[in-house]
């Protein structure tokens, strides 16, 4: 609260981690998801691939975008955006999947 914005362009409460290590982990995850995609088991593969995608995204958000060190209200902002998408998906999906459109030909 003591800091003024004009004199202090960057508040240094971020920690810098070893970014190259994060990058290496991301690459490994990418390769794993490619390999999983080549194996036959459809259901398992899809779940694996999307779990990996979420893990990768979370790593980028946490370490590259430094959300890990940001206050909770910014977590809430991002979290609520994702929550809204769940609302949207759940509200719309019955009309797309369960109610069959009847076309007049």
């Amino acid at each position: 609260m003591q800091e003024t914005i004009e004199q202090q362009p960057v508040a240094n409460y971020h920690r810098h981690v070893n970014y190259i290590k994060i990058w290496a982990i991301l690459l490994v995850l990418l390769i794993v998801s490619l390999i999983v995609g080549m194996i036959g088991y459809q259901f398992f593969a899809v779940w694996m691939i999307f779990t990996i995608a979420v893990v990768k995204a979370l790593m980028v958000v946490a370490y590259y975008m430094h959300l890990l060190w940001e206050p909770k209200f910014l977590w809430l902002a991002v979290g609520f955006a994702v929550l809204c998408l769940f609302f949207l998906f759940l509200g719309v999906v019955p009309d797309i999947l369960l109610v069959k459109l009847q076309l007049a030909h």
Binding site: E3, I5, Q7, A11, P71, A77, V78, A81, L85
Partner: peptide
């Protein structure tokens, strides 16, 4: 001096709100 209530620089807050709005665009 102009006091800031939160320790987060305003540019960073603005960027995160931009991110939130992009999440709903792409997510939609």
């Amino acid at each position: 001096s102009i006091p800031a209530m939160s320790e987060v620089p305003r540019g960073r807050i603005a960027m995160w709100w931009l991110v939130a709005s992009e999440i709903v665009i792409f997510g939609g």
